Amino acid sequence: MKLKASISILVTFFLLTSCVSNKDLTYFGDKGNGDELLAQNIKLNEKPYRVQISDLLSIMIKSSDQKLVAMFQPVASEDGSNNGTSEQSLYFNGFTVSKHGNIEIPTLGKMNVLAYTLTEIEEAIKKKLLEDYFKEEADLFVVVKLAGLRFTVTGEVGNTGIYVLYQDRVNIIEALASSGDITTVGNRKDVLIIRQYPQGQKIHHIDLTSIEAFNSPYYYIKPNDMIYVKPLKQKSLGTGTTLIQSITTIVTVLSLVTSVIVLSRNL
């Protein structure tokens, strides 16, 4: 009787601790207040990105006077345009925001861009060019973009590593998808985002199983973010993550226990 009770307790323990619940695997699983309200909340959270220290900017200046434009480009081709679009080219020819919040454009000199939006930087550059170098009829065109949004993903994901997405805005789901998504033993309820600030790094948390994740200030990642996915307890226990795997583990353990009992009785 004691043996049967011990086996029952053992089986119950494995069933309760080994399987990963469907709740733990489902993104945004709980119900919100309706799709329309949710969409409004997401739209409200889509604030323009403001430039930070160490950001890499790509600045393109176009005009009918391309020879004059060449003065403001780090590396110019014969027609006065900057054609480097590879990651390596952007690294050398882009404009890195210094620790004081400045970028330095050839001929124009230093400009403070810290906490400005990309649109505000475009307008400031265009204004300065029109005041000092170009005439209104020069058809001046200025585009400022982030030279790729770089971030790191590590922990329980398909492929850990450093990634660069050439988009103005990247949400955490897109970032995780680029790394092969969270594994079945990854903790979606407490994903860590380590973010850079002028005063240092801070760790933030987001629950991706809740629909409230859309309202989180960390739903959209920022350049140089590090995303860490912690393992679930099932991984540390070394048990199966599905019911079939758990049953296999239980059968293996029971077979081992039975073998030990049989051998001990024959001694």
Score class of each variant (00 low, 15 high):
residue 56 L to R: 03
residue 51 V to F: 05
residue 264 S to H: 00
residue 90 L to T: 03
residue 45 N to H: 13
residue 92 F to L: 01
residue 194 I to E: 04
residue 167 Q to P: 06
residue 70 A to S: 14
residue 262 V to F: 07
residue 21 S to I: 10
residue 13 F to L: 09
residue 21 S to Y: 03
residue 248 T to S: 14
residue 198 P to D: 03
residue 131 E to L: 12
residue 198 P to Q: 02
residue 163 Y to A: 04
residue 138 A to L: 08
residue 220 Y to Q: 01
residue 247 I to K: 00
residue 127 K to E: 02
residue 8 S to K: 06
residue 267 L to P: 02
residue 149 L to Y: 09
residue 83 N to G: 13
residue 97 V to N: 08
residue 242 T to G: 07
residue 206 I to S: 09
residue 112 N to E: 06
residue 141 F to M: 06
residue 84 G to M: 10
residue 70 A to R: 04
residue 34 G to D: 11
residue 21 S to K: 09
residue 241 T to V: 04
residue 91 Y to D: 15
residue 58 S to E: 13
residue 7 I to C: 03
residue 63 S to Q: 04
residue 235 K to N: 09
residue 246 S to T: 01
residue 117 T to I: 07
residue 118 L to W: 10
residue 221 I to S: 02
residue 126 K to A: 11
residue 123 E to A: 13
residue 196 Q to W: 03
residue 3 L to Q: 04
residue 177 A to N: 15
residue 183 T to A: 01
residue 142 V to I: 03
residue 201 Q to E: 12
residue 112 N to V: 02
residue 115 A to G: 12
residue 105 I to E: 08
residue 204 H to M: 14
residue 197 Y to W: 14
residue 99 K to V: 10
residue 252 T to Y: 00
residue 46 E to N: 12
residue 50 R to L: 11
residue 22 N to F: 12
residue 185 V to H: 04
residue 260 V to S: 00
residue 64 S to W: 11
residue 142 V to K: 08
residue 238 G to E: 01
residue 266 N to S: 11
residue 266 N to I: 10
residue 76 A to L: 06
residue 215 N to M: 09
residue 241 T to M: 05
residue 264 S to M: 05
residue 59 I to W: 01
residue 150 R to T: 06
residue 87 E to P: 10
residue 106 P to E: 08
residue 48 P to D: 11
residue 123 E to H: 14
residue 168 D to G: 12
residue 140 L to R: 07
residue 57 L to N: 13
residue 126 K to C: 10
residue 21 S to E: 10
residue 162 I to A: 02
residue 267 L to R: 13
residue 229 V to P: 08
residue 71 M to E: 15
residue 226 M to E: 14
residue 186 G to N: 08
residue 5 A to T: 07
residue 186 G to D: 02
residue 57 L to F: 14
residue 73 Q to S: 15
residue 105 I to W: 00
residue 187 N to Y: 10
residue 139 D to M: 08
residue 86 S to F: 07
residue 155 G to E: 10
residue 190 D to Y: 00
residue 257 V to T: 13
residue 259 S to H: 03
residue 250 I to P: 06
residue 264 S to F: 04
residue 234 Q to T: 11
residue 216 S to N: 05
residue 252 T to W: 05
residue 182 I to N: 02
residue 70 A to P: 09
residue 58 S to W: 06
residue 77 S to Y: 04
residue 231 P to Y: 11
residue 105 I to S: 02
residue 184 T to E: 10
residue 126 K to L: 11
residue 99 K to P: 01
residue 163 Y to S: 04
residue 13 F to Q: 12
residue 12 T to N: 07
residue 164 V to L: 13
residue 18 S to L: 08
residue 216 S to R: 06
residue 183 T to D: 03
residue 7 I to F: 09
residue 212 E to I: 14
residue 130 L to E: 01
residue 179 S to P: 05
residue 215 N to V: 04
residue 257 V to N: 12
residue 123 E to M: 10
